[in-house]
Design a protein around this nucleic acid. Structure first.
Lengths: 347, 347
DNA sequence: CTGAAAGCGCTAACAC
DNA sequence: GTGTTAGCGCTTTCAG
């Protein structure tokens, strides 16, 4: 447990502490010879700089913090429903951090908290990260983002457009809903239902827009009675499905704003004498792990979560070296994964 | 962005820095009056101690590291299959850490790595955590644990018994397999198949033992041709199912060592003209999120992952205050979740 | 190109 | 009870 410090390396190599520091951090102005000697000493002693000391001495902490909604996250964990967003975010961000010698710390703060700002500032004070990744719904909290920007905290907003307020890394939800709806129209559907997502999330409105865009382009009149509200829960999906399917002229296809609600449609369909995809096609958003196992497996829009997280981390790490991130949006491609829940309407 | 340090608080309250430190850390020997003054100053200034500085000055880092297998974890992420173990581990450990003012850092190291020890030591050197949570397969690597213990790193081994080598937090896999098998026997099954898990994991052998225990207690002779090997993958489950179901006298029930392989049995059954649970009952291990969605939903043994992680964190945090953790095992209760995949055998 | 010295914000040890 | 001092291991600044 004898700790190896930079001083030990310096002695071993017969150089000054600062020289070791230069070598370890890849700084210029070291002769080949000294560099070799230091590297050999580092190797021999198994030296690894202490993160804490680096933070104390220098201006960087080699750490990024990702902020997630506490309630949502814990709910997902507790219900045993899994947590695809968290998984994919870790996937993307951790690996990117790793490849740059950074660490990713993942923190939970309740988005509905009264003293949200205070809590976030407390995290920043304690951790002093080199950057902050905000996920929905935090990432759409303009007041929060503004406060952070005012404090010069490097921030990337994930899952939403930055609209000039900081940098955003996201997919085009509107285009995705458009493409999903077009897929249904191409199959021959004319009455296409839509189950909206929670208004707490900006993506919900974008998805509705995309749905309407596609109707318009397909020459189909908007029928508001084909649009049902939802809040991303299974229960709300059940209710929306009942509303839509009990109409006199029910839709032959439904676009649900997330997987959970689409699964609810699958669940509700038999009660209305509908088989999927025979009598009813279903498309969902998110492509979470479970939907491969449903019967039928769901056709779904895949969000590039790990890619967004990876990009977010990359931008922040670059910024910690080269100065402020440019306040622009990075739009990453989504995918339409066609599985068994979509088919032409019954003749 | 003006950083608030302990010195600012000391000035504001008109006391010495050490007094602030005492108050913030809940140490004794401070009068009511001074304590109040300091607390008010802390509140007013929004002071939060810097983790890095705490680590530098003191003997604690207020941080725990959880070590997971890199390959497994990344595979699960990439395949979009979800990662229940990681989710539940974070759930348990993070919340426990949070409630004690600790942080949880989650690290990936390839268990098959040639220089595993070196990599782990590098993590410890960089982070200097107050404790290390080992998960399978790292937690069963005796050499690794021994190295860690030699270096006086506080360690908790998750998912496996400690056998006196450090502290273990786990469930009783043997008893769980026993109970699952008994459930099948109680339903009236006499020919019960078993699909083993990968030998890389110690739990696999324990599960086989439990299966055999139950057969013995139920007065059923062991029939080795009812035991098929597996490695926790869907493919291996498919192969095992084929082997078992193509016998002249196929089993009427199968106990699979994890969900993935059980889902494979569900998938294979129709090919052999079997319906589940009519002709074939299936029980699995792990109770991951997806199996609620399979048809039928799987009866499964639930591992108390979040509880184990929570306990592990608790032990480590206690140890960082009160000295070494006692080298004993903590056995947490599992659950048998009965769903739709088990029923009495066809008459 | 290299090195010496001065902190970073905190706590441990010790004095008062 | 309370305050003072001396580091922790690094990087920053500034001399050489």
């Amino acid at each position: 447990m004898t700790k190896v410090t930079i001083r030990h390396v310096a002695e071993e190599a017969g150089v000054a502490v600062k020289t070791v520091s230069r070598v370890v951090n890849g700084e210029p102005n070291v002769t080949r010879d000294l560099r070799d000697r230091v590297e050999r000493a580092v190797e021999k002693l198994g030296y690894v700089p202490s993160m804490a000391a680096r933070r104390m001495g220098g201006s960087r902490s080699y750490m990024l913090v990702a902020l997630n909604d506490r309630r949502n996250t814990i709910n997902n964990w507790q219900s045993g429903r899994g947590n695809d967003w968290i998984d994919q975010m870790l996937h993307g961000a951790m690996l990117m951090c790793e490849s740059h010698g950074y660490r990713m710390l993942f923190e939970l703060v309740d988005a509905a908290s009264q003293d949200l700002d205070r809590r976030v500032v407390a995290i920043l004070s304690a951790l002093q990260p080199d950057g902050l990744i905000l996920t929905p719904p935090h990432s759409q909290n303009e007041a929060l983002v503004q406060m952070l920007l005012r404090r010069n905290v490097p921030v990337v907003r994930m899952g939403v457009p930055g609209h000039g307020l900081g940098v955003g890394v996201h997919m085009d939800d509107r285009a995705a809903a458009f493409e999903a709806t077009c897929h249904l129209i191409d199959l021959g559907h004319r009455r296409i239902g839509f189950i909206a997502g929670s208004e707490r999330f900006a993506a919900s409105e974008a998805r509705r827009r995309g749905y309407l865009d596609a109707l318009a382009q397909g020459g189909l009149a908007r029928d508001e009675s084909l649009e049902a509200p939802g809040d991303f829960t299974f229960e709300s999906g059940l209710e929306a499905a009942s509303t839509l399917l009990s109409r006199d002229t029910p839709p032959t296809a439904i676009l649900a704003s997330n997987d959970e609600m689409a699964l609810a449609v699958l669940h509700a369909a038999p009660r209305f004498g509908k088989t999927v995809p025979g009598d009813l096609s279903v498309i969902s958003f998110d492509d979470t792990p479970g939907i491969r196992l449903s019967v039928p497996a769901l056709t779904s829009i895949r969000q590039p979560i790990s890619e967004m997280a990876s990009r977010a981390a990359e931008l922040l790490i670059a910024a910690s070296r080269d100065g402020p991130v440019e306040a622009k949006d990075h739009i990453l491609p989504f995918g339409l994964i066609v599985r068994g829940s979509t088919a032409p309407p019954a003749a």
